[in-house]
């Protein structure tokens, strides 16, 4: 069904498009987001993050991450995170309600003072738990915020990819000037993304290092974001990945921050 749709849209855009490439750049990006950020109805994984500086010194972040989609790909999502490491933040929990068209709502439970606090941060610039990923890198950026264009089609490490250039429409709201993505023609997983700063020099590089199907969903098990200017990088490894567990809505509420539901500690 999906391939049929893709084939149809390729045929359509071949016929119609002014870009002269296979399909419209915006469609490619939309599909890529659906495959990369929205697979399944819900999702659970153990996430190990290594924040590594230029000299190889590491900081560890280990957490359990749950995600549930509300609506179609590209729509609202809720995330629940439970930290295991570093030791002094054990039991810290973090809830994110993500809306594609405005800043997310976030709550954090701080066990030392037994307090749930709402946190406001700028998705576009803030780092995700001190890593080289911004919140937006983790949860995505609304497709219509950028002008997308298909630069070319090529082979990336033996795979057929689209190379898409995305230029933010409101440049003052973000830190980068434009982004290039190497998107798999079959799975629509982004193999590589290059972020360029406003001076036009390369600033950050995302790579998907290991990809495998889990319950039929193509999943990026290992990924890296490297800040090429500072030499700092973040390596992320997923394990215990499970889709469609039937996570309940009540899990993604302020209440469960303090009183961890069994579904998570399990």
């Amino acid at each position: 069904m999906r391939t049929l749709f893709v084939a149809a849209s390729i045929a359509m855009s071949l016929f119609l498009s002014s870009t002269s490439f296979g399909m419209g750049a915006e469609d490619v990006v939309k599909k890529s987001q659906a495959a990369f950020l929205y697979p399944g109805k819900d999702f659970k994984a153990r996430v190990m993050m290594k924040l590594i500086n230029k000299d190889g010194q590491e900081r560890i972040r280990e957490l359990t991450m749950l995600r549930k989609n509300f609506g179609e790909p590209g729509g609202d999502q809720k995330y629940f995170m439970y930290f295991h490491q570093p030791a002094d933040v054990r039991d810290m929990t973090f809830l994110v309600w993500k809306y594609p068209r405005k800043d997310s709502d976030r709550w954090l439970f701080i066990p030392a003072i037994k307090l749930v606090k709402r946190i406001a941060a700028n998705d576009k610039r803030s780092s995700f738990v001190g890593s080289d990923f911004s919140y937006e890198d983790v949860s995505g950026r609304a497709v219509e915020e950028d002008n997308h264009s298909l630069l070319r089609e090529e082979k990336y490490e033996g795979k057929d990819v689209y190379v898409v250039k995305s230029v933010p429409k409101a440049s003052e709201s973000v830190d980068f000037g434009y982004k290039l993505s190497w998107i798999d023609k079959g799975s629509f997983i982004p193999w590589k993304e290059e972020y360029y700063d406003k001076r036009g020099s390369l600033s950050k590089v995302f790579t998907a290092n290991e990809v495998k199907p889990v319950q039929g969903f193509i999943t990026v098990m290992r990924r890296t974001m490297k800040n090429v200017q500072s030499g700092h990088r973040t390596e992320v490894v997923y394990s215990d990945v499970k889709y469609n567990q039937g996570l309940s809505d009540s899990l993604f509420t302020e209440r469960s921050l303090k009183n961890l539901p069994r579904e998570i500690s399990r």
Partner: peptide, 27 residues
């Protein structure tokens, strides 16, 4: 408490620029 300090700093590092904390403490 040491835990509170640790959690505050973690909270700070969750949203601030990486350099904010790096500039004042080692990893």
């Amino acid at each position: 408490s040491k835990d509170a300090v640790g959690q505050y700093l973690f909270l700070f590092s969750m949203s601030a620029k990486p350099s904010d904390l790096d500039n004042v403490v080692d990893s």
